[in-house]
Design a protein around this nucleic acid. Structure first.
Length: 530
RNA sequence: GGGCCAGUAGCUCAGCGGUAGAGCAGGGGACUCUUAAUCCCUUUGUCGUGGGUUCGAAUCCCUCCUGGCUCACCA
């Protein structure tokens, strides 16, 4: 009873660790097909896998983390077909398609995989990388190819039964690379004799690419062919000895691709397929995204913009099986930071709670500790908008002493993110920029007189403190005082309304002296006349 | 049609067996060596529906409703 309850309440990563036998060595694997620019959403898999890897190790398991670049797969994306430059390459392996930028990488696959994998370093993900083209060309998968060809009938039956895909008799579960046109997605192979197979590059074999009609007979080994998706998956499991592999729900759903591969693995390789949880998708933003300016939805843009811990935290604080809706617009980032800080506090209180583990797994290294003094993201965003505030000085004042090196670094990074946020994502109510046009106003006569009086000071008094002093005096002169003789709120409210469109704001003396004097004078006079 | 997930305060969500919570929004107040957007106080809930288990259910089990996503070609 107690046992059952403990199991149910286990943190997701710990629950997965329990599936693995501590007596044997393990391999956890993830992969990516470099078909084009990779969106942020694709980072959820690698980050979850890395979190599991870290958890497994912490719990004393012996484990390797293997990452494969599936760059021998054929180009089949419809968007590439619409593109004039890439149309002729439909059906070829990504590894043999020209690079969009030869200065950066030699071919299509290396270009896109390179840009994606480059983000891993900033995210603290350090797997062993393998390119499928190397495995094929070096003959590492030849044993698997031979195995698959000899069991073609079994595999054909599984495809028919589990996936309801019916291949013609004699069909072999590999794709030969056509010697004439270089396409791999358009060929059908038959007649394995133990050394060679016959193939035909058919014009109408698939809808997304046109074969050239060539026929031939070739050895399928040493990179001349590629296993089909499901069988290649099995071959990778077998070659690396994979014991754990999580995946997205597009693949892991019932009757889906993973189930097919599992069945083939059991039937042909006679091994038990890896365990692995299913993760839900990461959804980016609402419909208004497209109209927003310059929102970087690609993985490398996002990683350039946000610190690695924050991206990891974003991906990990929501349990994998739950969908993750993310839109950087609005108050998402301030809330994300608040939650991050809350989890850091939890970690200091009790590192074994779920929230604490989310924080720990978000860190780039396993031995990171929360920093003692930090400032709320939303507060920093406010500071950045107030001319009189120097965030670094203000931070020292808050702390009561100078910041440590780590604290200072964290402050700078938060300020950077806050600047980006204010610039492109912050909602109107979080910003208090100067209104570009005169805001709608309802002012009393004394307030109008006050604005006219202040307008005369602008450009004359340059010192913010002196200006602040004079603002009070000017208010008294026009009678904007309370019955107790104090300066009324209405005085400052008039100023803020005219400049910001809200009844309050940053200290007025600093605000007025920081802005362009002729602009302020005109604005105040316009407001007084309105 | 199969599968996964969600439905808790106006909004975003946390809680996952022991008297309903947070942030934001809303309301009230404080700050004149001098308005930070700071600080203090505060309202709001048939916890989607109907059953069941239990001394006790937002929490566990089943039914149903609603919404989102995904698979059923290829990779």
């Amino acid at each position: 009873m107690r046992e059952a309850r403990a199991a149910r309440e286990l943190f997701w990563a710990d629950a997965e660790a329990r599936l693995l036998d501590p007596a044997v060595a393990h391999v956890i694997r993830d992969s990516k097909t470099p078909s084009g620019t990779v969106p942020v959403s694709s980072l959820r898999g690698p980050i979850i896998t890395d979190a599991l890897y870290r958890t497994f190790r912490r719990r004393g398991l012996r484990v390797r983390f293997v990452y494969t670049i599936d760059d021998y797969d054929p180009m089949d994306s419809q968007t590439m077909r619409q593109n004039e430059a890439t149309r002729e390459h439909m059906g070829k392996p990504f590894a043999t398609i020209p690079s969009p930028d030869p200065a950066y990488a030699g071919d299509w696959a290396d270009y896109h995989a390179g840009r994606f994998v480059a983000t891993f370093a900033d995210l603290g993900i350090r797997p062993e990388f393998f390119r499928m083209r190397d495995l094929y060309r070096d003959g590492k998968l030849d044993r698997a190819i031979d195995l698959v060809l000899r069991h073609a009938e079994t595999i054909r039956g599984i495809h028919a039964r589990v996936a309801n895909v019916h291949h013609e008799e004699g069909w072999l579960p590999i794709s030969m690379i056509c010697e004439r046109c270089g396409r791999i997605g358009t060929t059908i192979a038959t007649g394995y004799d133990g050394e060679t197979v016959a193939y035909e590059c058919r014009p109408d074999y698939v809808t997304w690419a046109d074969g050239c009609g060539n026929r031939g007979r070739l050895s399928p080994f040493k990179g001349a062919s590629k296993l089909l998706w499901n069988e290649q998956w099995c071959a990778q499991w077998d070659y690396f000895g994979v014991t754990y592999e999580e995946g997205g729900k597009d693949l892991l759903t019932a009757g889906g691709s993973r189930e097919r591969s599992n069945e083939i693995y059991r039937a042909v390789w006679r091994r038990e397929p890896p365990a692995g949880l299913m993760h839900e998708f990461f959804l980016l933003g609402g419909r208004k995204m497209s109209t927003s300016k310059g929102i970087g939805a690609s993985a490398h843009d996002m990683v350039a913009l946000l610190p690695g811990e924050i991206i990891r935290f974003l991906m990990l604080r929501t349990p994998p099986r739950r969908a993750l809706e993310f839109d950087p617009a609005g108050n998402t980032l301030p809330k994300l930071y608040d939650e991050y800080d809350r989890c850091a506090d939890e970690y200091l209180r009790d590192p074994e709670t779920d929230l604490a583990k989310a924080w720990w797994l978000a860190q780039l290294s396993a031995d990171a500790q929360p920093i003692a003094f930090r400032l709320r993201f939303s507060l920093l965003a406010d500071w950045l908008q107030i001319p009189s505030v120097d965030p670094h000085r203000e931070a020292r004042a808050r702390k009561g002493s100078s910041l440590s090196e780590l604290e200072d670094r964290e402050l700078r990074r938060r300020l950077d993110v806050a600047r980006s946020w204010l610039e492109r994502w912050a909602p109107d109510e979080a910003t208090f920029g100067i209104a570009t046009d005169l805001p709608p106003l309802t002012l009393t006569d004394p307030q109008r007189a006050y604005l006219r009086g202040v307008a005369k000071l602008v450009g004359v008094i340059a010192d913010p403190e002196a200006m602040q002093e004079e603002l009070y005096e000017a208010a008294k002169r026009v009678g904007l005082v309370t019955p107790e003789g104090k300066v009324s709120k209405d005085a400052f409210a008039a100023l803020y309304s005219a400049l910001i469109g809200k009844p309050n704001g940053p200290r007025a003396g600093w605000l007025l002296t920081a802005l362009d004097a002729p602009f302020v004078r005109k604005r105040l006079e316009d407001a007084a006349a309105a």
